[in-house]
Amino acid sequence: MNGTASALVWRGGSSFETVEVDLPQPGPGETLVRLTAATVCGSDRHTVSGRRPAPCPSVLGHEGVGTVVTTNGGRTVDGAAVVPGTRVVFGVTRTCGTCEPCRRGLTAKCTSVQKAGHESFDSDWPLSGTYASHILLRDGQAIVAVPESLQDGVAATAGCAVATVMAVLERAGELTGRRVLVNGLGMLGIVAVAAALQRGAAEVVAMDPNAERRSLARGLGATALAPATDRPGTVDVSLELSGAPAGVRSCIEALGIGGTAVLAGSVAPAGTIEVDPEWLVRGWRTLTGVHNYEPRHLQQAVDFLEDLGDGLPWTDILDGPIAADELAAEFLRDDVPRLRTVLIM
C-alpha cells in the first residue's frame, strides 16, 4: 500500500518523536484505520511518569476512533464484514481465540494477549497505538461501528473506560432498586455513576477526594461524599475504581448482607487488604475483580454512549483538542482539569 503514517513514538519520560512509517498492508483478518481522534487515558500518564512499566520505544494510546481505510477480512463484534469508510472504535486487546482462557470466554486473559498502545515500536506491530495518524487492527481485536451522532472525543472513550465499566457492571449483577457505591471518580467512575443510575439503582453514592469530580457526580444524580470526612453507609453493590487501598477497604467494609464488591482500579501493586473470611461467609458477600473487558462490552459501550451520551457533561469531561506537537507538554502538566484530553493528529 502506498503512503505513510505519522506516529508519535514514545522514547521514555516525556520524550516523543514524530516518525513517518510506510502504511502496512493488512494481513488476514486485519484492518487499517485512519484515526480521527484519540483520548489520553490516565494509564498512559502513569506510563510516562514511570509508575507503570511499558515497552519503549512504542506508540502509546489505546482509546481512539477512526475510519476504515482497508481491510483483509475484518469483522465487527456483531459479525458484520468491515467496510472501508466505516467509522469504528476498537478493543484494547488482541487475542488468539484458542487458548484455555479464550475458550472459557475470558479473552481478556488470553495467554498470548497483545494490547493496543502497549507493544514495542520495534515489534511486528509498530502501529499498535492511537497517538498516530493510523492504527493497524489485528485479527482477534474487537471492532464496533460508531454512529455519526457521537462526536469523536466521546466515541474514543468507548475503547477503554466505557467498555471496562460495562464489564464491571455485568460482574456486579442486577442493580435495579439497589444502593450502589462508586469509589474513584475518574473517567470510569463518572461513567459508572451514570450507567448505574440508568440501570435502575435506587441510589448511587459517589466518593472521591476531588471536589470538582464530586460535583460532576452530583450533577448526574449521585450522592457525593468526601472520603476524608464522610462514610457511605451500607450498600448492596460497591464499585472500586481508584486502586487506592483506602478506597478498596471502604468498598469492602460498606457491603451489606448479600452485597457484591467489584474491584477494577487495583491494576498496580498497592499492598494487601485484610478481609475477615467469617464476615464474608456469614454475610453471603461477594468480592470479585475485573481487568480489561470482552468484545461484547465494547458493543455495549457504544450503545450506552448512543443512548445516554448526551446526558454526560462532556464539556467538563473532555479537554482539548491538542495537536501532535502538544502531546509531550500534556504529559508534563501538573494540573489536569478534565478527565480526558483529546488528541488530533
Rank of each mutant, 00 (worst) to 15 (best):
P126W: 01
A172P: 08
R333V: 07
A172G: 10
L312W: 07
T157Y: 03
L35A: 09
P57C: 11
W279Q: 12
A211E: 15
R214G: 06
V182M: 10
Q25D: 14
T223H: 09
L305P: 10
D310H: 11
G289R: 13
A38T: 00
V162N: 12
L169W: 08
D303T: 14
P269D: 07
D307F: 10
T315Q: 15
N292L: 10
R214F: 04
A268D: 03
V275N: 06
D335G: 10
R34V: 02
D22A: 15
G29L: 05
D122G: 14
R178G: 06
I317L: 13
E330L: 15
L332D: 15
E240T: 07
V193T: 11
T86S: 15
F16H: 02
Q198Y: 08
A224M: 08
G129R: 01
G12R: 03
T223K: 14
R75F: 02
G29P: 12
L318R: 11
I322N: 02
D78W: 01
E174T: 15
T71C: 07
P28T: 04
R138H: 12
A222R: 08
R199N: 03
T164E: 12
T341R: 07
D22N: 11
K109P: 00
D319N: 07
H297Q: 12
V21Y: 00
P26L: 02
V82F: 03
G233F: 06
E294Y: 06
L220G: 12
P101Y: 02
G85N: 08
W10V: 05
V275T: 06
L197V: 05
T98D: 13
V89P: 06
V302H: 08
G3N: 02
T288L: 11
E100F: 12
G105W: 07
L23A: 08
W284H: 15
G221R: 09
I257G: 08
V40R: 03
T234W: 08
Q300S: 14
R52H: 11
E174Y: 12
P337Y: 07
V281R: 15
E170M: 04
V275K: 02
R34H: 08
L343Y: 02
L216T: 09
G27N: 04
W279M: 07
L308F: 13
G50C: 01
W279A: 13
H291G: 10
A132E: 01
C96A: 10
L332I: 00
R282H: 15
S58F: 00
T47N: 02
L150Y: 05
A156T: 06
G129F: 01
R11T: 01
G140Y: 08
D208A: 11
H134S: 08
L175Y: 05
I344L: 14
G153L: 05
I135N: 06
E212I: 00
F331Q: 07
V168F: 08
T315I: 00
V33L: 03
V262L: 03
